[in-house]
Design a protein around this nucleic acid. Sequence first.
DNA 1: AACCTTCTGTGATAAATGTTACTGTAGATT
DNA 2: AATCTACAGTAACATTTATCACAGAAGGTT
Lengths: 211, 211
Amino acid sequence: MQPSLKTLFPNFSTELIATIEENGSAQDFKAGTVLMRTGQYIKNTVLITKGKIKIYREGEDGGEFLMYYLQPGQACAISMICTAKSEKSQIMAKVVEDVSVMMIPLQMMDKWMMEHRSWYEFVIETYRSRFEEVLEVVDNIAFRSMDERLEFYLKRHSDSCGCSEVNLSHQEIATELNTSREVVSRLLKKMEQRGLVKLNRNQIELLKFNH
Amino acid sequence: MQPSLKTLFPNFSTELIATIEENGSAQDFKAGTVLMRTGQYIKNTVLITKGKIKIYREGEDGGEFLMYYLQPGQACAISMICTAKSEKSQIMAKVVEDVSVMMIPLQMMDKWMMEHRSWYEFVIETYRSRFEEVLEVVDNIAFRSMDERLEFYLKRHSDSCGCSEVNLSHQEIATELNTSREVVSRLLKKMEQRGLVKLNRNQIELLKFNH
DNA sequence: AACCTTCTGTGATAAATGTTACTGTAGATT
DNA sequence: AATCTACAGTAACATTTATCACAGAAGGTT
């Protein structure tokens, strides 16, 4: 049994929850599914109730660049922004861990903004926090070198899962940072020598990441 | 005599314009003024009626990184997002050309969102277009090399001023792209050899930028 | 004109990152 | 056990960008 909407979105009013359950459609997607492509028109706003979605930017040459993850209790800011005018998506969204979502038709957006204070606040807060997150991403690529970005990436991962092991191959990390596996391997090895991590197959244990 | 609010913000309703004139305070700032610093609390939303403001991110070492410019008829998205909860600014805002602005106390934000449809739409559209712009910035630093970023930068400049001359020194460009002057000089020289630009002192003429 | 300041050009060199190529290893498959 | 495949390590080299050092040019000031 999954947690209820009320648990996942504690700030939503009771009436709003009821409205969502009435108008939204609950759907499941398997890991690997691409929910949204660059250039596609957006028809729904998405609330995540289970699993994990990766939001990333795709380069012309097919390269990826991770923006952020969406997790239960969160919503896709892009879809909220774009739906207002049924704009094209500027990003890719791919399911990383099997998800359950609430799809909310875009017509509801404007209506609820006016009718439900808690929806309005949620939308604004979603905009704000994502904008902030993207600014942090800009910081990282604009001002920091690869080794710092890698550290930041690992930290973010362990924060999000709450544990100190990151279960990813070097290749996967390289893809999300838009660099090559060799570079990631090299840098991780240096970090291991500095005692920051312990490297296993498909796993990186973070050791001294608490400051 | 400056253009009226009605001209600059054609989508605003007549009542909204009246409300803005009643509650906002018109202010002027000289070029060079820093209107907002990273970490400062935001108390106002800003509508630009004249001039140009640069929104950029500041690195720990003092490096800059241009996000976008604000021009007449536009508003600061960050201030709109943050005001909702009187959050801290994540960016720097510096006046590039003497500006006139309408300062709107943050308390108005939520109120107007509910009362004025045209304000609501303006805010959403502001969010959307800035988010998009920032995503494009991410693209540039994540996927492109310096020469492409420089071309993009010049193009954006000439688009914004409507002319084909960019009146900036190499040093200024370097600062905004967070690189060094020498790199900019070298790349510009190559572009000149390719016939893309003509270089003068404090000025770059764009030649073949129309495709 | 003589001087000064800012801007521009360019070579030499260093550092970071990307690329190629190859080796070894762990775990899965047969 | 033999084999296969994905993952990881690493050396050598190429490319890009950053840094240092210096020279010359443009324009303003005296």
